[in-house]
Nucleic acid binder design. Structure first.
Lengths: 232, 232
DNA sequence: TTGCTCGGTTAGTGAGCGTTAACCTCGCCA
DNA sequence: TGGCGAGGTTAACGCTCACTAACCGAGCAA
């Protein structure tokens, strides 16, 4: 466990501030001058450290994806060595993800918000890492809940990520006492969700809820009279 | 229960396509020419219908917020008339939200992604509607789980929104059989999460998870040094 | 017919912004 | 001392893009 104490390099300062700004106002909403100002240099000085604005985003997203995945793998490895039960391994995975979500909120936000601003190759890389990370979870979840079919397990894992990554939204002041309480609550929520997913898999009592609530700007179906580009 | 069958007006077509495009590539990532092309007119023709690009986003976000809130209120009212138990009322709320999430995915995405591109007054309005909607949920959740403290209930509701709104991410092909199955699964996940939040509130077995996992570009605290992929 | 509104069109403008060019100044090594 | 690379600076360029100006044709009422 090497928690670094030495000062961050210029590159790291820049990436940190860029992550914060991108998360706050979106990739396109932030100018290079602003990023520069945030670290005390101005505008084009950034180009001594990065090939361009895109390169910063790419490095951020690839970085967080790699860390999530490798963190997950390490969890699994340690759990294997320690001979932990599947349930405990899942707890470790959840705890690790919560640490990411709470400590690197800005990156988590970016991670599922600006992915499509990347060059094709980088996007592919990030997507692949994401997929591998998801499959890690799916494997453990299905050990804990063997009765849960694979597709449902995968969808549930995505949903739980949505749950855990919601921390940016509850960042409002005075929301929860402290970090540990927030982590514990998120942990319970995640475990409970997964257990329930497995629990009632027989199909069921729900699903017959309220009528489709006729939408105003229905979009996804696409059909409608709505003009050109019929196919794609 | 007015499921509209008549053709959408021009304004509605535009809003629908704008929502889709904004959700796909972000507000700044879409040009007015593109929105126009999507409805068969080109570029500045849009200004016959809207004051500007910002106005479209504002109308979309205020609209979805209003619909979410009023849909929630209607649920509560109907549940009250029918004399439903709190649990059933909560199920109705969840079902309604899932309908929104599944049918108006693009708007749900926008809703928590582009909020800060709004003029102050519009943003305030949207935030207020969001808050009221959350409080609706908090009230019902605390009727179902009286032992859950208010702050934890509120945080849990936010987290459950994150869970339910994760549908855009699992949109990938072949993820789940059909809409009803997805809705049922999301429903179980949400109920399970809330039940678990209430269940172990005493603080507990969790929380002692893996060490803080020193972050790379630590941002939020502002202080701290962070290392580039230090360990591994 | 005349004339007015509604909803389009194309051309142009002006601002913002990413990026590059040219220059400057340290600290360091031979 | 001389050179040189690392890391800044300011000025300027060029492109994108929201928005405006000016014009136009269909429908329609008087």
């Amino acid at each position: 466990m090497s928690t670094r104490t030495d000062a961050p390099t210029r590159r790291e300062q820049i990436l940190g501030q860029a992550a914060r700004l991108f998360a706050e106002r979106g990739f396109h909403g932030v100018g290079v001058d602003e990023i520069g100002a945030a670290v005390g240099i101005s505008g084009p000085g950034l180009y001594r450290h990065f090939a361009g604005k895109d390169a910063m985003l790419a490095e951020l997203l690839v970085g967080i994806s790699e860390r999530l995945y490798s963190g997950g793998r390490r969890c699994m490895a340690e759990a294997g060595e320690a001979g932990l039960a599947p349930g405990a391994t899942l707890d470790a995975l959840i705890g690790r993800h919560i640490d990411f979500a709470l400590d690197d909120r800005a990156l988590i936000t970016l991670h599922d918000r600006e992915l499509d601003r990347l060059r094709d190759s980088d996007r592919k890389l990030v997507r692949q890492l994401q997929r591998q990370y998801v499959e890690l979870w799916v494997g453990v979840v299905r050990q804990v809940h063997p009765e849960l079919p694979e597709k449902e397990a995968r969808a549930s894992v995505h949903a739980v990520f949505g749950l855990l990554n919601s921390t940016p939204h509850l960042s409002r002041p005075s929301s929860l006492p402290d970090r540990d309480a927030a982590a514990a609550l998120l942990h319970r929520l995640a475990r409970g969700a997964l257990a329930a997913a497995a629990g009632g898999a027989g199909g069921g009592a729900y699903g017959a809820e309220g009528a489709p609530a006729g939408g105003v700007y229905r979009v996804d179906g696409g059909t409608a009279g709505a003009g050109p580009r019929a196919e794609d």
